[in-house]
Simulated scan of single mutants.
Amino acid sequence: MPMPHSNRSVPRQLKPELESEFARSPALGYEAPDEAGFVRCLSHGFPTPLARWHYHDEYELHLITKTSGKVFVGDWIGQFQPGHLVLTGPRLPHNWLSIDTPDGGVPFRDLAIQFDHEPLMQSAALIHELAELGPLLERARNGIEFFGMGESTEQQWHRIKQATGLRRLTAFFDLMCDLAACTDYRLLSSVQLQSDDDDASIDQIHALVSRITDNLSEHHSAAAIAAELGMSESRFSRFFRKATGNTFTDFVNRVRISRACQLLMDTDQQISLICYEVGFNNVANFNRRFLESKGMTPSEFRKQSLTRFRGAA
């Protein structure tokens, strides 16, 4: 059933824009194509056409140096101020919207670094030391906010920007080493698998998570799945928590909330229908769980998410 019409203007296109290579003009702050190698530096002010709800195939390390406002990363909505530092993974939508921009805007607000996944993975297969970046890049699928690293990262960004060739690559890996070692961070969007178990266990968890994700409206019982895997329920609980960082029930609820966020952002579907589609039995429980997870109600989340399309005005 469609939602009732309102006076609020709703964008026809609710999904993020894919950033294409031809749109990366030096006039907007990108490095010229003949300058950009594996590590691409980007700087720009605000307002700018680059501030929009979008995604791209590269990782992006994004530092805010001026103004404060609202940030959107995947299904996460939060606040930013100078020193705000986030690493987003490939195709994770994002946008930063300043709310205290002075008249005429600011010439420099964002310092970013973009880099590709595949060259790193191919190199890590041959150079063992690069494998240390693996856990960091896995976490980046959710978006990672780092704390207390804004000032040092700004200095390192300028060092990378001014360097070329091997010296640029050396400066880049120096920064990545610091990020990989940072323990003061939070993951921003959805859920993340973390496991140092053998490949078979990891595959088992991935298959289980895919099954939950693909069948959210079904009842998922830890006892039933444990029996299916030939484990006691207590052993399965330990196994699952080690792999995901969550209890089974918390994980299922987080995946359901994440899917609800996607539907709230990408569709005009009624909230009550979304509640049942993602597997909650009643709207009151859905609202309570959503508030616990996101710090706002589903209707407020939808209202705030609509502002992710602003930016260049």
Rank of each mutant, 00 (worst) to 15 (best):
S6C: 00
R12N: 07
E17Y: 09
F22W: 15
A23N: 13
A27E: 14
E35K: 10
L42Y: 06
S43L: 05
F46S: 14
T48I: 03
A51F: 13
R52H: 07
E58R: 15
L63C: 00
S68R: 15
G69Y: 12
K70N: 11
F72V: 01
G74I: 06
Q81G: 12
P82S: 07
L85W: 10
P90E: 06
R91W: 14
R91F: 12
P93H: 10
I99H: 02
D103L: 10
G104V: 10
V106N: 03
I113T: 02
I113P: 04
S123C: 13
A125M: 13
L130N: 12
E132N: 13
E132S: 14
E132A: 15
R139T: 11
F146T: 05
E154H: 06
W157R: 02
R159D: 01
T164Q: 08
F172I: 00
D178H: 11
L179R: 11
D184Q: 09
R186A: 01
L187H: 10
Q194H: 12
S195G: 06
D198I: 12
S201E: 11
I202G: 01
Q204I: 03
I212Y: 01
T213Q: 08
E218R: 09
H219D: 07
H220P: 03
A226L: 06
S232F: 05
S237Q: 13
R241L: 08
R241G: 01
G245F: 05
V252E: 01
R256W: 00
Q269D: 14
Q269V: 07
Q269M: 15
N285L: 00
G295H: 02
M296N: 01
T297P: 01
S299R: 08
F301L: 00
Q304C: 04
S305F: 05
T307N: 10
F309W: 03
R310G: 13
R310H: 15
A313K: 08
